[in-house]
Design a protein around this nucleic acid. Structure first.
Lengths: 361, 361
DNA sequence: GAGAGGGATTGAAACATTTCAATGCCCGCA
DNA sequence: TGCGGGCATTGAAATGTTTCAATCCCTCTC
């Protein structure tokens, strides 16, 4: 950690013990306006029932006193809340930060507040957050599950919480889901590399307990078989524990140490690819001359890397938006709700980081 | 929008009207366990008061019935909540997505839930979110304000909501704040370019109502004056309405159309710089040969752009963490809370995108 | 001038908790 | 046998809303 990380100046000043102890309630407003409690409530919730004159009086009392309604109390009596939980696997990843705006824009329009949680790929942390969100009586939850098992999510839904799977299909259509076809994505990447003539490729994958990772591997193997290769021979897979640039560097080191060095690397996401590219440059290994690299997600800056990164693009904005929409219809549908699965197809974006292997064979 | 953006397959199946209508309450648990309501509450909140045997009985009833505590009701009676609002200016920007993890990790440890809101630089949307968060009785709010005026935030704090400014100093130390010295950042960038010999630089700035933008401009002007130049002569500033790659392209077009084309461009953030670099390449203008480019924020991929981007680095992870910490101490401090301002210093990271101007003058 | 009709307002119950004073119970000690 | 003390449990009040049946009052009609 460099020294810029330490604060250079820390000033303290100005104490205050002014903070309000007790808040005003509608009772106070009612007293101030000379009406009953029920009328204040009506002004707020069903103004069409209240005479114009009375409304004005009550509203000016609210303003004069600075009354702020108490949402928890309101929810206690009223039932459903206007809060939605979003549980992502890694809050800092560019992947999720490109999905989040789609979710936010849709749900903000519907007047929902977002509780964002990061499971950090830990099923325990995920379970903790789900429990807490359920206690908060959120109307629904958008989740990209950490583990393979989603039984607990189905139960959650049966207990009345809207659930939509993000970037993951539900087994047997028991839940709404929005996803990108990951098998297809792995296949596209593999097909591209094998078509270029690569015969041995490194695969920097995440833990296979993560469904996306398992699916992409399956696609990659499928492509290998279609190219007439034995997947176990043609693919040397490394499982990374962290899926960022750091992980990419670690993984690359392992691949290079291997006796039979591959001529191309397929990375489970663009951040990992960033690490690989960076380290290749550092080691003086030419990309794509000596080593081709394919990323995944096609994050915004992939086109601007050096070399520009070949990657698998997914419609992230749409993914988030579609998920949010599904959740909203889930709320509205009372009894006759039909689970929906929306599957987007990924697209291969070919750029400068892939080329035929040095000695084609 | 390409055709991958449309879902390729939409299947619907499996209706269910199973969703629970009414939830269980502690009363049901009490009945099931054969104890009183108060005892159930004690098991949950002050187990040390309850006999071992009773505790076991109650806990097994809770499990058997699948009881889930009601957080809103709990909060209604108990007072303070364990929820924190985070209001950022643009939820999708890499800048905030690199700050968010620092906040999340600290607050998750303290068992707080995060309500994340994006003001999209609109004071109206910000006001709406602040009102809603206050209604939800959040314990505190971390905010990067959209406008210049923070009077409403001071009032908010006086009403009992913890407030910490993110990336912005409070006037007269009336609020806790965590920030990076933006004047200094603008100065660093300007000093670097003027020292290289540039005499006329383009400045793609955001709206000057955003404090960060105004501060960086001030720093830039200061550097110009120190270099013996008239800021109004040496700097041609363009105000962008959107601060992303798209905005960068728009801004670049305007700068190039200008009669007196600058030899360097300082961009208000790295995403804008990304757009500039991309468009320069498209137009066949060499960077840094014909045009130097400096970004701001030093997001993770800045080093991997082509050419690698010179940028101003800020300790984002620490920024988030420090802000979260300040907020937490704000909760704990009852009466004798002293406002703190923590100012981090930015750092100039010189990479390949800057060089002396083509015809030094 | 009486009664019907209808809009505006009210009062009280209900929501799921926490908290705290009061009660109950058991044990030991005199 | 009676009493004080301490632990465990209970019952009821309080929290800030919404909702709904009941009431009030005014106007219109016959």
């Amino acid at each position: 950690m460099s020294d810029i990380d330490r604060p250079s100046k820390t000033s303290t000043s100005g104490s205050d013990g002014e903070r309000a102890r007790t808040r005003l309630s509608m009772v106070d407003v009612a007293a101030h306006a000379g009406v009953s409690l029920g009328t204040v409530s009506n002004v707020l919730n069903r103004p069409e029932l209240v005479a114009e004159r009375t409304q004005r009086r009550v509203r000016s009392s609210i303003a004069a006193l600075g009354f702020v309604p108490n949402a928890p109390a309101r929810q206690l009596r009223g039932g459903r809340s206007r809060t939605v939980g979003v549980v992502v696997r890694e809050i800092g990843s560019p992947y999720f930060s490109e999905i989040l705006p789609g979710i936010e824009s849709k749900l903000a329009k519907e007047q929902f507040l977002l509780m964002v949680c990061s499971s950090d790929d830990s099923p325990d942390k995920e379970a903790y957050y789900l429990k807490t969100l359920e206690e908060h009586r959120v109307a629904g939850i958008l989740i990209s599950p950490a583990g393979d098992d989603i039984e607990h999510l189905i139960e959650l839904r049966q207990r009345g919480v809207g659930v939509v799977l993000l970037d993951r299909l539900g087994v047997g259509s028991q839940l709404c889901a929005v996803a990108v076809n990951n098998v297809q994505g792995g296949d596209l990447a593999g097909d591209h590399l094998f078509s270029l003539g690569h015969r041995r490729i490194g695969f920097l994958n995440g833990p296979s307990t993560v469904r996306q990772c398992a699916d992409r591997r399956e696609g990659l193997h499928r492509a290998a078989r279609r190219a007439g290769l034995d997947p176990d021979e043609a693919i040397s897979e490394i499982t990374l524990s962290v899926l960022n640039a750091q992980g990419g560097e670690t993984g690359l080191a392992q691949l290079l140490d291997d006796g039979r060095r591959p001529s191309a690397i397929f990375c489970i996401n663009d951040m990992v690819a960033v690490g690989v590219l960076r380290d290749l440059a550092k080691r003086g290994i030419a990309a794509p001359g000596e080593m081709s690299v394919v990323g995944y997600d096609d994050v915004e800056f992939a086109a601007l890397l050096s070399p520009a990164l070949t990657s698998i693009r997914m419609p992230k904005q749409q993914l988030g938006q579609a998920a949010a929409e599904l959740l909203v219809t889930d709320f509205r549908a009372d009894d006759n709700h039909w689970h929906q699965e929306i599957v987007f197809q990924p697209e291969l974006i070919i750029r400068a980081s892939t080329a035929p292997p040095p000695t084609s064979g």
